[in-house]
Simulated scan of single mutants.
Amino acid sequence: MIDAGEATRRTFDLLAELERREKGDERRAAEWHEKANTGEAEPRWYCDACNHTPPQWTPHCPACRSFDTLEWRAPGAAAEILPPPALPADGTLAAASVGKIA
């Protein structure tokens, strides 16, 4: 038996379609569709810089043009919940603070 924590939403939708086409069982297909609501979302590409979700991997994010920032992950990961740190308006990086050594 497949549980919600073991499959993606698409898996459950495909099982519902299979149930409908092979056996003509609409009740069982509806049960699979209900499980799809609790399944994991499909992983996809995310830009770590701007959270854009391009349809395929590219070296540069199509939205912000950042290099090597696309990551393959499922929606809801911690990196998606927290927004990326904001850059200064002029595009420069803030200098790190340096403390004195006593």
Rank of each mutant, 00 (worst) to 15 (best):
T58R: 12
G91W: 03
A78S: 12
D48R: 15
P84F: 06
A49H: 04
D90G: 00
T69L: 00
A36D: 03
P62C: 13
E80W: 06
P83G: 09
S66D: 09
G5E: 14
T53N: 13
W32R: 03
A63W: 01
T92C: 04
G5M: 08
E31P: 00
L70C: 07
A4H: 09
E17S: 08
G91M: 01
W72C: 00
N37Y: 04
R9Q: 15
I101P: 00
P55Y: 05
K23Q: 12
P84N: 04
F12A: 05
Y46L: 14
A94G: 03
D25G: 01
R9K: 14
L14H: 05
P88S: 04
E42N: 08
A4N: 10
D13G: 05
D25W: 01
A74Y: 00
E22Y: 09
P85C: 00
Q56W: 05
R21D: 10
I81V: 11
Y46S: 08
A30K: 14
R44D: 05
L82P: 01
Q56F: 12
D48K: 14
C64D: 07
A94I: 06
H52I: 01
Q56D: 11
D25F: 02
E34M: 03
E6L: 13
P62V: 14
R20M: 14
A77T: 08
Y46G: 02
L82F: 06
A96S: 06
W72P: 01
A89T: 13
R21M: 09
P75S: 04
L82D: 04
E40F: 09
E34R: 11
A30N: 11
E31L: 03
T69I: 02
A41V: 00
G76S: 09
E22A: 15
W45M: 14
T58S: 15
A41L: 04
P85H: 01
P85W: 03
M1W: 07
N51T: 10
N37S: 12
L93G: 08
E26I: 12
T69D: 11
A41T: 00
I2L: 15
W57Q: 14
T92N: 08
P75Q: 02
P75K: 05
P59F: 08
P83C: 07
L70S: 07
T8G: 06
A30L: 14
D90R: 02
E19Q: 12
C50A: 07
N37E: 15
D68M: 13
